[in-house]
Write a protein that binds this DNA or RNA. Structure first.
Length: 292
DNA sequence: CAAACTCCCTGTTAGC
DNA sequence: TGCTAACAGGGAGTTT
């Protein structure tokens, strides 16, 4: 699933292929993908505009569109989204949701199997980006800031790190990886972490994100959007050996999210309020099932 | 106000 | 082997 490094890769890919080109028209194949669009139809709004800049903010791909009135087009890839640039003569692919035809005979294809991805078209970027927290690879992201953001909270560290309004761009993979590298249990209440944890955690987050960015994202083999070379140490490696201590990697659930960790490198906090459910054990009955 | 829960989706997989 | 139901997950919206 695309997180900051994968989105950064997408942005770099798009930068060299679409910056400076103009949009001829757009076709919406799944209407709900367009989550924000003031005024006329999406296609009418973007037709004729020039893509002057492609950038990233958190997990969002941003495009500045210069036209009759300036617009910003943001794309959130969510779970399964990808943006590709293909010759316009190529057929529509399964799961293509939006196609943007460009002036050079190519087109941007927003492909999104699970339909969670969204596009936001707006004249004011702040409307989309306002709620996002600090960029974790920026100089602004200091140990002091991290501590100030989190230390006063009672919630577990993992859901706090996933909160995009605090830090923008971390997802399940890189949070698990960062907590492992810093030896912090994901259920540790933020307020229980020692002073030096914040320095370590900031360092782990930046190291891992930088490494993943330079390797073009995480290698899954099955992902359409990923395809990078970053190899997780614990994420998705339940039952395998911890690279640091050779202990067994466990999988638990934290805040409804699958969570991977090494229990000997990341000792359990004393008074975890949540139950720890091991995948390998007897499966707990799932108490929440929707009714419709 | 912070935190937790619900729902959106479909390909994959566990379980029988 | 074939089928079904559970599962996965980011974040907007809702509830506690």
């Amino acid at each position: 699933m695309p997180e900051l490094p994968e989105v950064e890769s997408t942005v770099r890919y798009l930068k060299e292929r679409v910056e400076g080109l103009s949009i001829e028209r757009a076709v919406i194949l799944w209407h709900r993908t367009i989550a924000l669009n003031r005024g006329k139809s999406f296609s009418q709004q973007v037709a004729g505009a020039t893509i002057t800049e492609v950038f990233r903010r958190g997990k969002l791909v941003g495009m500045r569109l210069a036209g009759a009135s300036d617009q910003f087009l943001f794309t959130h890839l969510r779970m399964s989204g990808s943006l590709d640039v293909l010759p316009s003569s190529f057929d529509v692919a399964p799961h293509d949701r939006v196609i943007i035809f460009l002036s050079n005979g190519k087109s941007i294809r927003f492909n999104d199997t699970r339909k969670f991805g969204r596009m936001y078209l707006t004249p004011s970027p702040d409307e989309v980006v306002r709620s996002l927290g600090v960029e974790p690879l920026s100089a602004e992201f200091t140990p002091e800031l991290l501590q100030r953001l989190l230390a006063g909270r009672k919630r577990a560290i993992k859901p706090a790190l996933l909160d995009q309004s605090l830090i923008a761009g971390l997802g399940n993979i890189y949070v698990d990886e960062s907590l492992w590298r810093s030896g912090i249990h994901p259920l540790s209440p933020c307020s229980s972490l020692p002073e030096d944890a914040w320095r370590s955690l900031r360092r782990s987050i930046q190291e891992i994100l930088s490494e993943a960015v330079s390797l073009l994202g995480t290698d899954f083999g099955d992902g359409v959007v990923d395809g990078g070379m970053y190899r997780p140490s614990v994420y998705g490696r339940t039952g395998e050996r911890c690279p640091r201590c050779s202990g067994e990697i466990s999988r638990i659930v934290v805040g409804q999210r699958g969570t991977h960790l090494c229990l000997s490198c990341q000792p359990k906090p004393r008074k975890a309020r949540h139950r720890v459910k091991l995948t390998r054990g007897a499966k707990a009955p799932s108490q929440k099932r929707r009714k419709r």
